[in-house]
Amino acid sequence: MSFTVNTLRNVTTACQQMRDHIKTIVFRPDAHKTLDITFGPTVAAELIGRTPEALAKAEAKGRLPQPKQLPNGRRFYTLEDLTQIREALGIHVGKQPDEDAVVLAVQNFKGGVGKSTITKHLADYLALHGYRVLVIDCDPQASTTTMFDIQPETLIDDDQTLGAFLSPRSTFSNFAETIRDTPWPTIKIVPSSLGLQDAEWDLTSTLREGGQAVRESLQALRIGIASVTKDFDVILLDPPPAMGFLGLNVMAAATGLLIPVPARQLDYLSTIHFMDTIADNIEILEQNGTPVNYGFIRVVCSTFSPSKPGENDMWRIMQATYAGLLLGQPILASEEIKNATQAFRSIYESKPSASHQTYTRCRDNLDAVFGEVEQQIRQQWSSTSLTGTDAGVSVAA
């Protein structure tokens, strides 16, 4: 083994050992993430779309079980309790059984824009509000996979992976078997693995065969998702940072696009190239028999620091140039988000790392941003769109 390879292997081993050590501290005692999220009556009622009084009344009448209590007598609810309450009260949040999941790609080629962090936080937000979510990590770097407490290297000998499904050389064809559980009861994940990079090469090799082989390689992910699209409300795609065959698969599978853009000049300018590239590649997909037409495209300003004059200027420029595509709220830069991700968590899984006021401000900001995304998602289903028969949450009588 050469000096270079040996050095890189040693560094990798040392980093993996340190990562595992950090996890034993963060997730002790078993070094695995567990959800210890609880909600008081006010927050629980808000999440299920009721008032605290209505919740208490349903409990008093026996329609709901009595809530858990702390030693001081304060009532609280778990995430599982919220799911059971929705079922007991006939509260249906997502799509109807005959409708398809919204497939949303969170994409930008520029590094450091917060793509994986947004994917993780959006998934948790949607799950808190009662949606069934599937996250598909299509990035070989596997940042989103790691935040859901799955280590990519544990999948090396696993034949039932996304890489195996996408590879034209593989005989594995059951997409549903790539789906794994997460600590969240209503979030599933198709994790990334090292085999995804091999799948990229295998997909690219179909160029030599041309015609039908290329069309099949471009539609592989779309076909896989089609087999589970009735089982989820929202499917979130975390794409690779470049537009190869993996990226084209993501673009072909998505039905909506969310583009994170920090309020910085270089990021803004690079996004011009990104959007042009996306348009070019959609034309390539269509020329190869894979039509693409997104139900919505939205730009979200990420990691925004309003105290920085330069970023305020860029925010105004973004408002002027992105017009109706820009979400009304930017995602504010926050140490709370940084601290949470360092602990392999989202804000929605974490306790305040600084003052409670700072934590609340950060969470309220994310709720406002993702609330806008949620409305775009609901517009894609005829049962919940403003032009459909039911513009709100369906509730049994």
Rank of each mutant, 00 (worst) to 15 (best):
181 D>M: 03
168 P>V: 04
64 L>R: 08
66 Q>H: 13
389 T>C: 07
351 K>F: 11
393 V>T: 13
149 D>C: 07
100 D>W: 06
122 L>M: 13
314 M>A: 10
114 G>N: 02
159 D>F: 14
37 I>M: 09
243 M>L: 14
370 F>M: 14
95 K>P: 02
115 K>G: 07
120 K>A: 12
140 P>W: 12
282 I>H: 03
68 K>M: 14
259 I>A: 04
270 S>K: 00
9 R>Y: 04
374 E>S: 10
357 Q>G: 05
367 D>P: 09
312 N>W: 07
52 P>A: 05
290 T>F: 08
88 A>S: 15
339 N>I: 03
237 L>I: 15
10 N>Y: 07
268 Y>V: 15
110 K>Q: 11
210 G>R: 06
208 R>W: 13
350 S>H: 03
270 S>V: 13
78 T>E: 07
218 L>F: 13
334 S>I: 09
44 A>R: 03
211 G>R: 08
271 T>C: 11
382 S>P: 06
359 Y>T: 02
236 L>Y: 00
90 G>E: 05
385 S>P: 10
384 T>S: 10
64 L>C: 12
52 P>N: 06
270 S>E: 11
18 M>C: 01
354 A>N: 11
11 V>P: 02
87 E>F: 00
68 K>N: 13
246 L>K: 01
338 K>D: 04
196 L>W: 01
4 T>V: 14
351 K>P: 02
334 S>C: 11
86 R>Y: 02
139 D>C: 04
7 T>P: 01
